[in-house]
Write a protein that binds this DNA or RNA. Structure first.
Lengths: 341, 341
DNA sequence: CTGAAAGCGCTTACAG
DNA sequence: CTGAAAGCGCTTACAG
């Protein structure tokens, strides 16, 4: 037997098709009895409105687009949990998340935006890993495409579009406080080159916290890339050439490199060297010792992003969009929990 | 200015709407000149067919559904790369991947299937982490929903539906061969309880390879769950109570637990103890020493799955669907590359 | 190879 | 609060 349509439900319940539609889209405008009658028919026929028909007539796909593919920083850390939280936040609002393929370059992603938006395949996008000079928010804004950026508008006007980010400066401040509390004074920072998303804020957080504690900022290090090898190279030098007792890193991946360099240098992380990461990724939980790291509230990020995009699409009247800066949570683990003697 | 419709393109190119439609869906049936003319108009107007209209009239969403959410084995290992490969395989066929939220239980996922399928929100599903008694393939088959299972139909008839899997038995055989080659003879296996997806095959592969080499299979271990703590508990016992020089594990997570237990027992993984994992996940590359592991050909899995689902939907006449068992690739790293003295 | 007609299954104003 | 009409933008047979 064929799938039930709105017509079948209307006949079964003895109401018009419009009333069935209202039962789904505007249930408050129906009398309790009518609504109940329709609900019973819907259940009896296991009816669900066709997504395609609904999308065509309402001009809403109820889909939010997110890029995957290409090398991405998040891919080794938090993209999977981010997608999880996005899907979880979208579900109750009747939305799903659609993935599309593009390289991790602005141009490649913008080409995909254009294609998907022209098809109205999605109602909006989540853009992550923003960076200085990012062309994506500008393009989306110019084309009136609903979106939220996960990441500060680095080096750009901060009120041009809606964004949400996790405060890396505050996070590194927490890390430094924690390390100082454990007795460390020679605390190095290992970050990325300047134009890497979020890296500058984390470095700034370390710098100002060090100053606040009256400590020097000479051990300010930069790995060539966010990978283990780059971290090892820089960390090896500082471990042999300084009296650093702690290394605060801009990512769990960099911290992994420091753990490796420490071992090669005969140091014992978690015993005579403290190491901290950022992301609280699976790496943090599986490394030995487990890594102290900063946990990002991805659930809140996802909820904010989905709510904004859906609100935008629904034309819900709202105040000027407010961007948000969340605070990460410090998760202390074995790599830094010991007290310095 | 409003978005261009097929009508605008037809007018611009001086052809009928049907011809524009053909240019997208059946370009071979158009004369070269006509096609070119339409293409120019499409480019001039930056026209793309509306996904919604297309889905409604063709009864195809061009979307493949995949579950995320809930605890999942893949979430700590290979779900992100699997999604990557799915999206990459789907793109060239005009498909995208849509994520939906459900718990990692058959019932929860089936409820989501029903909802999405009734809405025709997707053209089919990829189901992963199949397990003995899995209710999902049966439900999907019964409701004539196109799908591919990533995972063998454990303990069920093997020709009821299309599936693809990676041969865990062959993989563990490769691991044992490698370890024997390096001089190991006391090789333990650490796996999961029996009804865990794929675990039995990996164990079987170890058992038969050991026998093939004339080695004993007494060190056949089972962790209570696929987590570090469970692995540590079992591994600690075997490291102190046996002469094992190598532990082959059913996952990178379990291997991580063995590395930890070894450290606690004063053993040095990669020097006096070999450890191997399975999945070649990010953990394998970030652990110290790096983990020898089995890499699953997720690109081939994704391509197979997408091709089958799309083919099913397109009604392409095809031979009886053929399921496939792929062979994983052994990636030798520091955790097992040393020769036993 | 090209074109006019019908229809996919809803939602959106609008009238009662 | 409920109902009849129009229309969303395509694709699918079918006729020429």
């Amino acid at each position: 037997m064929a799938r039930a349509t709105i017509r079948d439900v209307a006949a079964h319940a003895g109401v018009s098709r419009q009333t069935v539609s209202n039962a789904f889209n505007d249930p408050d405008h129906l009398s309790a009895e009518t609504l109940e009658r329709v609900r019973r028919s819907v259940a009896a026929l296991n009816y669900r409105p066709s997504n395609a028909a609904r999308a065509l007539s309402s001009a809403r796909s109820r889909l939010v687009g997110v890029r995957v593919g290409g090398p991405a920083h998040l891919s080794v850390s938090n993209r999977d949990p981010l997608l999880n939280e996005l899907v979880r936040a979208a579900g109750p609002l009747g939305y799903n998340v659609v993935l599309f393929d593009a390289q991790a370059t602005d141009d490649s992603e913008i080409t995909a935006f254009d294609e998907l938006w022209q098809r109205r395949a999605v109602d909006g996008f989540l853009v992550y890993d923003t960076h200085p000079g990012d062309a994506r928010p500008a393009w989306l804004t110019r084309h009136h495409v609903p979106f939220v950026a996960f990441g500060t508008p680095w080096g750009q006007a901060r009120n041009q579009h809606v964004w949400i980010d996790v405060d890396g400066a505050a996070g590194l401040g927490r890390v430094v406080d924690h390390l100082v509390e454990r007795g460390h004074r020679q605390i190095a920072f290992l970050g990325w080159p300047t134009d890497r998303a979020g890296g500058d804020a984390r470095r700034r957080g370390w710098t100002s916290a060090m100053k606040r504690h009256g400590l020097g900022t000479a051990l300010n290090l930069t790995a060539a890339a966010d990978d283990i090898e780059s971290a090892v190279a820089v960390a090896s030098a500082v471990l042999s050439g300084s009296h650093a007792t702690a290394v605060a890193c801009a990512s769990d991946v960099l911290a992994t490199g420091v753990l490796l360099a420490a071992q090669q240098a005969g140091r014992i992380p978690g015993v005579d060297l403290a190491v901290t990461g950022y992301d609280d990724s699976v790496i943090a939980r599986t490394s030995r010792p487990q890594l102290t790291s900063l946990h990002q509230p991805l659930d809140a990020v996802a909820a904010f992003a989905v709510a904004h995009i859906v609100g935008e699409v629904s034309g819900v009247p709202r105040a000027k969009p407010r961007s948000r800066l969340m605070t990460p949570t410090l998760i202390v683990r074995g790599s830094s929990s010991f007290p310095v003697r």
